[in-house]
Write a protein that binds this DNA or RNA. Structure first.
Length: 324
DNA sequence: ACCCAGGTGAGGG
DNA sequence: CCCTCACCTGGG
């Protein structure tokens, strides 16, 4: 089934860190530009095939036999960079060993082991999570995809050439024989800053359209330098991002965690709040802020990982219990 | 026809 | 500070 590796092969292999689980990572709700499909190998054992737009190209990734088999649909990318993007470089065995000292997490980990915290592009992550407010995951994915399709750069299959008509603006379309993009990169702050509010609303953003527009303008103008955030300490980074429109207490933690790799971040959404109240606080209600502080005190630099497992765990449980 | 969905920001106590 | 409420829009 594996295509022979020719001299110009577009397939490569990546060895993930021990315990890394591709499907669980991509389906744990942290990213919006990956789709996962189950596939069946010739031997009959199920494995995962995923497709995502990353770093200006499109990657198809299958996890089999402890390896990640990467096929570039767009221009060949950097395998090490993809590995880092997926979080497949993180010491999950040590992290989960530490978390499993907590009896609640030990039980949850049976269902969630192998989830890595990804290292997504900070700008794309920021916009995605601003869109996530009072929204649902399928619609967030559609919005991000629409933004990329409308304002991003087309990505062509390896070997395909851009035509003059494509460079001029919208792709001319297949009926004229122009190359069809395999995907679109996420648009830059400059590009989104100049988009009209109506055009943004057309991307299913609803009332979030002005947030995205003003957010893009602030970043494009350098009011907040995303490139400098990694050098700030946690509280300063948090304060800098919180100043942006549409970025509140929950979104800022998501961006720090999934975009900047700050694993002490602990986003408290309705699901995590439910999990903590149900499993740790005897059902007593607490404010999101109180839960966040409690979690950081309890798990410190692994708070973000604890959050990810609690989120996946409580959603799995409610899915199994729920009638719908 | 309603009701809900991974919050945020504005306004008043 | 804490609390309350409206909010685009698509899918149950």
């Amino acid at each position: 089934m594996t295509a022979p590796a020719g001299p110009r092969t577009r397939t490569t292999q990546v060895v993930p860190a021990s315990r890394f689980h591709l499907a669980r990572t991509l389906q744990s709700g942290q990213c919006f530009r990956w789709t996962v499909a189950a596939a069946v190998a010739s031997g009959g054992t199920a494995h995962t095939v995923a497709r995502g737009v990353v770093n200006g190209t499109v990657a198809r990734v299958a996890q089999r036999g402890g390896r990640l088999i990467v096929t570039w649909e767009g221009p060949p990318g950097d395998a090490a960079r993809l590995r880092r993007h997926l979080g497949a470089d993180q010491p999950l065995e040590a992290i989960e060993g530490e978390l499993a000292r907590d009896p609640v997490l030990r039980r949850v980990l049976a269902q969630t082991s192998g989830i890595a915290i990804m290292r997504q592009d900070p700008w794309e992550c920021l916009v995605s999570y601003v869109i996530s407010a009072f929204n649902n995951i399928p619609k967030i994915c559609r919005s991000v995809e629409a933004l990329a399709r409308r304002f991003g750069e087309p990505i062509y299959a390896r070997g395909a050439r851009e035509t003059a008509s494509v460079q001029a603006g919208r792709p001319a379309g297949a009926h004229r024989g122009a190359a069809v993009p395999v995907g679109w990169s996420f648009p830059s702050p400059e590009r989104l800053a100049q988009a009209s509010e109506a055009a943004l609303r057309a991307c299913i953003l609803g009332y979030r359209a002005p947030y995205v527009r003003v957010l893009a303008r602030h970043v494009a103008d350098g009011d907040v330098d995303l490139g400098a955030v990694p050098r700030l300490d946690f509280d300063d980074a948090r304060a800098a991002l919180l100043a942006l429109p549409g970025v509140g207490e929950k979104v800022v933690e998501c961006v720090l965690l999934f975009g900047f790799g700050r694993r002490e971040a602990f986003p408290v959404d309705v699901w995590v709040q439910r999990a903590v109240e149900r499993w740790y606080l005897g059902g007593r209600a607490r404010t999101p802020r109180a839960i966040r502080e409690w979690a950081r005190e309890r798990w410190g630099p692994l708070a973000g990982y604890a959050q990810q497992h609690l989120f996946a765990g409580v959603r799995t449980q409610d899915r199994l219990d729920g009638t719908s």
